[in-house]
Amino acid sequence: MTARTTGSLRVNGATLHYEVRGEGPLLLLIPGGTGGAASFDDIADDLASAYTVATYDPRGMSRSTLDDPEAEQRVAEHADDAFRMLELLSPGEPARVFGASSGAIVAVHLLTARPERVARVVAHEPPLVEVLPDAAEHRALIARVKETFRTQGLMPAMTVFAEGLKKDGDAPEPKAEIKLPPQAAARAEQTMANLPYFVGRIVPGFMSYAPDLRRLEALSDRLVLACGEDSRGELPYRPAAFLAERLGTELRHFPGGHTGLTTHPAEFGEHLRKALRV
């Protein structure tokens, strides 16, 4: 196992926990969903043979605390947190950035806001639903999730959210049971602890975000859009596919589905290595 150092970074309205391992050019990994720095434990050591790998808990998640726990969460502020990480760990040197799910939204905004600090971004299934032709339907979904969370609680809201992410018109298909790696299974407790914050703050704040498409077109040579092989037709797949076509770039496919990082870590890490090459 590669040795790692930990630290804390004070940013506007929060204190971020981060971890660093390896040496070489900086690779910043931005987690999505309820994940924190630990969600990359299954791939970070391998990547650290070629990069200085930095991971962190996004503000409000796990060990990164908010000054105001009730504060609304905005993509631009989370992207500024990522920028502050780059300034701390790779001052003056453009870095590679990977983001998964909501973390991919952060990475996309970071690219458009601070392109001078980013050499390459790999965005895995960013749920940028505002770019889709049927964006109004997804706004209605988020409104239903928020109202269900307010009136009925966490798990009913998660049920509404999960239904909205399924393949269009599909009944749930039975899936083969996937045995999670031991580290991933051990993270389940922390994942559940982060869930109320994710549903109540991250989902509404991030899925209402609309990227600057003109800026993305100008920077498309630095952006790699990726999806899971098993995600075809599901909502998180569609924005990346739409953007790849809009930007005229290749849509890359990684092993597994939306959570392929967790279910297929070795194969996922190998695909990420290839996508990061500038």
Rank of each mutant, 00 (worst) to 15 (best):
D68N: 15
V53T: 09
A48I: 03
F83L: 10
L27F: 03
S62Q: 11
Y51I: 08
A71S: 13
D67W: 08
P58I: 07
R74S: 10
D57T: 07
D42E: 15
I43R: 02
A50M: 12
V53D: 09
A44I: 06
G33M: 06
E72C: 04
D41Y: 06
G60C: 04
R74G: 02
L28W: 02
A82D: 01
A76D: 12
G24E: 08
A71G: 03
L47E: 07
T55H: 05
M85Q: 08
I30D: 08
E23L: 04
E23N: 11
G22A: 09
L89S: 00
L89E: 00
D81P: 07
A37E: 05
A44P: 06
G60R: 04
L26D: 02
A71Q: 13
R74P: 01
E87A: 10
P58Q: 08
T65P: 00
R63Q: 15
V53A: 07
T55M: 14
A48T: 04
G24P: 06
H78Q: 11
H78T: 01
L26V: 15
D68W: 05
A54R: 07
L66M: 13
G33S: 11
P69V: 03
R59E: 00
V53Y: 10
R84Y: 00
P31R: 12
G36M: 10
D67F: 10
G60P: 09
L89V: 02
P31Y: 11
D41W: 06
R84M: 03
F40T: 13
P69N: 07
P69S: 06
A76H: 06
L89K: 00
G60I: 04
